[in-house]
Nucleic acid binder design. Structure first.
Length: 573
RNA sequence: GCACCCAUAGCUCAGCUGGAUAGAGCGUCGCCCUCCGAAGGCGAAGGCCUCAGGUUCGAAUCCUGAUGGGUGCGCCA
């Protein structure tokens, strides 16, 4: 049930009738006809731009179309007024009964708000994908929350979603990890060790070194790197992935699959992907132009194997092999995305940190080439998170081993608050995360404000239960504040589709705040006007009519928080 | 030098595949409340949507250019 879609259907059908009857020229494209909430509630409940969109192709004046359309729409029982306004807007006012119907619809249909716009298309959302070299930090946390919420949103809107984590376990950084663990291993054997540049000094590796000792004893002590490197690398990577899985679980993030970069090496998968590009004439040997401006100090022209990414929208061609003939990091990424395409996904979404922005075009070029333009790739970049506590900014530095981790954040404010706050900005805007404000119980804190609305509703419901008042799905609406809430509820299915289409889960968080705000306003009216309270002392039937609206609010808040991965609370503590 | 992202109220930010008089919170100012339906309420002021062009019936939104900020730019991932 989507009221806006219903009314749009009515408008479209009416326009088609007008075309059939000759009131409008036949064959007009109605795709751009929209039915939206008006910016100003005084304009009515809904507005359509039909007359303005059609004026030019129909070669008629907007107001003439609007007048004719208004007359016909007014025949529909749902519409009590249709007024032409401004340059040709048609403002529609709906019958009061419509809004009661919305409430009844929410209560009667647990899937209210779900959409089939995804039409079951298979989409792969890749997120987090942090190097398996240490615990997740706040930056990863934002990516994890964003990706998880986006995945849930797309699921809610009718896509078949797979959540995947790409393990960068094939590059040089896992060798560094192995050497760092080896140092901790020696340390566990009582040796004094020094962590030089290019190793990870973080404490989290101490127990990994001890675990390694427990496993292999002193077998690697004093041994050459070639003896132990491969084994220690596997051991350490596994330990780090356990750590990362634990971190993700503490946030409530569960992946459907983990995809190993290493599995691409020595299995012919990289070769197969590059061969595919080669067959398309997109691989060649060549020398890249040096970047303009600031030149790398050791720049010298070298012949490399290049991917002609410029044929698919990139700015320069990109190397897939280093000058020594080994693969660049780009090659396994191509192979990984080739694999995604071959697994049959209809759409791909990658979620990166903003520092990977320069990587987007070549990745899109690769997917475009590999799928012959059939599979869209959307790359969402998550901007930096700045942490604050007591007004003091927190710094993070992975190299120094003093970064603020995901578990630091989750332990302090909990997974629900972490997740909600991470979604109170759109992904491409930087986010300030203030520990103190995040847990503050006041209306200035959006997390609290939304949760509190739900808690208030459940508080009343508990009183209903105590008083033995039966619930009814038939609401009685009378006050403007009640209609405002009902209108906001009616927007929910539309909001879901807008958010899903744009891959912007933050819109859900903002919507929930607005819904909570309208609800609190109604609640406050109950302070001055007891007749607007949900629980009407001694009047069971009136109470039953009043409680339907807040129950519907709770349904939508719970659904919305569910998409964000936040647990709706039933009481504040 | 080039690419990408960003620029909206004093501050932090929303703003719908282009729509009407651009919104919210904080802060400021005014009024009310001190009743556990508690963790305040109501209202007001506050804007050249960075700037200049363009497309359009209509632009914060799309295009071009400029300015300011962020990120990145072969042999790190």
């Amino acid at each position: 049930m989507n009221l806006f879609a219903d009314i749009r259907t009515l408008v479209i059908a009416t326009l088609e009738t007008m075309m059939a009857e000759g009131a409008l020229p036949a064959g007009l494209d109605l795709a751009n006809v929209a039915v939206e909430p008006p910016r100003d509630a005084a304009h009515g409940d809904m507005a359509t731009n039909a007359a303005m969109v059609l004026a030019k192709p129909a070669k008629l004046k907007p107001r003439d179309i609007a007048d004719a359309l208004a007359q016909r729409l007014a025949d529909d029982p749902r519409i009590v007024a249709a007024e032409v306004a401004g340059p040709g807007f048609l403002n529609l006012r709906l019958a009061d009964g419509i809004w009661a119907g919305v409430i009844a619809g929410v209560l009667g249909d647990p899937s209210f708000g779900r959409s089939d716009m995804g039409a079951g298309k298979r989409v792969l959302v890749e997120y987090v994908s942090a190097n398996p070299t240490g615990p997740l930090h706040v930056g990863h946390t934002r990516g994890a929350v964003f990706g998880d919420a986006l995945a849930a949103l797309l699921d809610y809107a009718g896509w078949d979603v797979t959540r995947e984590y790409y393990i960068n376990d094939g590059g040089a950084q896992v060798d560094v990890l192995a050497r760092s663990v080896y140092l901790r291993y020696l340390e566990a054997h009582g040796q004094a060790v020094a962590f030089e540049d290019g190793t990870y000094p973080g404490d989290y590796l101490i127990e990994v070194g001890e675990a390694l000792k427990a496993k292999v004893g002193d077998a690697y002590v004093g041994q050459d790197e070639q003896v132990w490197l491969a084994e220690v690398r596997d051991f350490a990577t596994e330990a780090m992935m356990d750590l990362i899985r634990t971190d993700l679980a503490s946030l409530g993030v569960t992946m459907d699959s983990f995809y190993s970069e290493k599995s691409l090496y020595g299995t012919g998968k990289i070769e197969a992907a590059i061969d595919d590009l080669h067959a398309k004439g997109l691989i060649y040997e060549g020398v890249l132009e040096p970047p303009k401006g600031k030149l790398p100090e050791d720049w010298e022209p070298r012949e490399q194997t290049l991917f002609r990414s410029t044929a698919h929208g990139d700015d320069v061609d990109r190397p897939v092999k280093k000058s020594d003939g080994s693969w660049t990091y780009f090659a396994p990424d191509i192979a990984y995305h080739y694999d995604k395409v071959q697994r049959g996904y209809d759409e791909l979404i990658d979620i990166f940190g903003a520092d990977h922005g320069g990587y987007v075009k070549r990745m899109k070029a690769a997917v475009s080439a590999l799928s012959e333009g059939q599979v869209p790739l959307d790359v969402k970049l998550c901007q930096l998170v700045k942490l604050f506590k007591n007004g003091e900014p927190f710094k993070m530095s992975k190299r120094a081993g003093t970064f603020v981790t995901l578990s630091d954040v989750v332990e302090q404010v909990g997974p629900d608050v972490t997740r909600f706050v991470m979604l109170t900005r759109k992904n491409d805007a930087p986010l300030d995360f203030d520990f103190d404000k995040a847990v503050e119980q006041s209306k200035d804190n959006p997390v609290f404000y939304v949760q509190y609305a739900n808690a208030r509703i459940h508080s009343v419901l508990r009183k209903f239960a105590e008083a033995g008042i039966p619930l009814s799905d038939e609401p009685v609406l009378e006050d403007a504040a009640e209609f405002a809430v009902a209108r906001k509820l009616a927007e929910w299915p539309r909001l879901v589709e807008i958010a899903a289409r744009n891959h912007e889960p933050h819109r859900v968080a903002f919507y929930l705040y607005e819904l909570a705000s309208d609800f609190h306003a109604l609640w406050n009216r109950g302070n001055d006007t007891p007749a607007l309270r949900f629980l009407q002392d001694g009047n069971t039937s009136a109470s039953a009519g009043k409680i339907a609206l807040p129950r519907a609010v709770s349904v939508v808040i719970s659904a919305g928080l569910g998409i964000l991965g936040v647990t709706p609370v039933e009481e504040m503590r």
